[in-house]
């Protein structure tokens, strides 16, 4: 055959890994400087705070982007999964009788594992059930139908928690002791370190799962072309359910983190958080898991930057303003639509 292989679609030249790393480092330095100017000796703490908040948004954003990637649905109920996750962990910890920091490290680790496992599994199952009951039948319906259904599911979940659990702010046990650690020149609170390590660990695990495993390939192929995936023997119902399980479990993990880090939760917390995490997913390029993680951190920084500059009231405006800017100049988001792209 002819030697010239004409690419079907022109693609952006791939920037080298080193270049990407350089860009990230430069952006982080710039962010640090922007945070440091008004906050002075609080700079380091604020920087860590931004990464932590970003990690929470990133965990939620992954669920939005995965579900969008595979069935092109903006799952507006996803923020509520996060909220329910925070209540599951609150319920578990208070039922077990914890109200404050646990000083015994082994007990602490055990309780953390339990809290995350329970919340992630429960929310994963809730996500699967929602997909089965509310979205599956609408898979071939016009796009507006499942979208409105998702908003409806979101209200249902909020109202269940509102009626059954609590109609006001609930204090959650902050079981991780308030300890300042010194990592070389960096001073970081134990809770921040824990959240960042956990979130990054989950994200790396997710990337490996999607990129390297057979089920990950099934998910990607279903996202690219559902019919073709079926012809390979992929059961798309199972694959879509799996996607909902993983995305919801990550939001469940974010819910536990919410309780541990902020010490409070409330029935309508999922709305704001969900909206911002959705923005993170779009910023990064909806359908693209790396993009969602990146978008989460961008939003964490935007929020902290607007608050250290004394403009905390404007943080929403800054976040959504950034969304508008990115969409105007780069409609596919920072990294483009990887998962959702069609051949």
């Amino acid at each position: 055959m002819s030697a010239a292989a004409t690419p079907v679609a022109r693609r952006r030249p791939r920037v080298g890994r080193l270049n990407n790393l350089l860009v990230i480092v430069l952006v982080l330095i710039a962010a640090y400087v922007i945070i440091a100017i008004p906050s002075g000796d609080q700079a380091q703490q604020q920087f860590v705070n931004a990464v932590t908040i970003g990690a929470i948004y990133a965990l939620i954003a992954l669920g939005y982007t995965m579900v969008y990637g595979i069935i092109e649905l903006i799952n507006f109920a996803h923020g509520e999964i996060f909220m329910c996750g925070s209540f599951v962990s609150w319920w578990l910890l208070t039922t077990l009788g914890f109200s404050g920091a646990i000083s015994d490290p082994i007990l602490l680790i055990g309780v953390l594992i339990l809290a995350f496992a329970v919340s992630m599994v429960v929310m994963g199952i809730v996500g699967v059930v929602i997909e089965r009951l509310a979205y599956r039948r609408l898979r071939n319906a016009p796009r507006l139908a499942p979208l409105i259904t998702a908003i409806g599911v979101s209200f249902i979940l909020q109202n269940i928690v509102f009626v059954v659990v609590s109609n006001s702010i609930v204090t959650t046990p902050q079981i991780i002791p308030n300890t300042q650690l010194a990592l070389g020149p960096i001073s970081i609170n134990l809770i921040n370190l824990f959240v960042i390590v956990l979130a990054v660990g989950l994200m790396v695990a997710l990337q490996l799962f999607i990129g390297r495993t057979r089920l990950g390939r099934a998910m990607r192929s279903t996202a690219i072309d559902r019919d073709a995936a079926q012809l390979m023997g992929v059961d798309i119902n199972t694959t879509i359910a799996l996607t909902f399980f993983i995305g919801s479990a990550l939001a469940g993990a974010a819910g536990v983190v919410q309780g541990l880090y902020f010490g409070i939760t409330v029935f309508n917390i999922g709305f704001q958080a969900g909206l911002k995490a959705f923005t993170a997913a779009v910023l990064g390029g909806i359908g693209n898991t790396t993009g969602a993680a990146l978008g989460g951190f961008v939003i964490g920084f935007l929020e902290v930057i607007s608050s250290v500059w004394g403009q905390g009231r404007w943080s929403e405006a800054v976040v959504f303003g950034m969304l508008v800017l990115v969409l105007v100049f780069r409609p596919t988001g920072i990294l483009g639509q990887q998962l959702a792209d069609r051949a």
Binding site: R220, D225, A228, L231, M232, V234
Partner: peptide, 22 residues
């Protein structure tokens, strides 16, 4: 299938691995 319907974002090897999925 008609129109080839290969998985454009996946590598050639991954496409073949998809064929071996079951």
């Amino acid at each position: 299938p008609e129109g080839r319907r290969i998985f454009g974002r996946m590598t050639v090897l991954e496409n073949l691995q998809m064929g071996a999925y079951t």
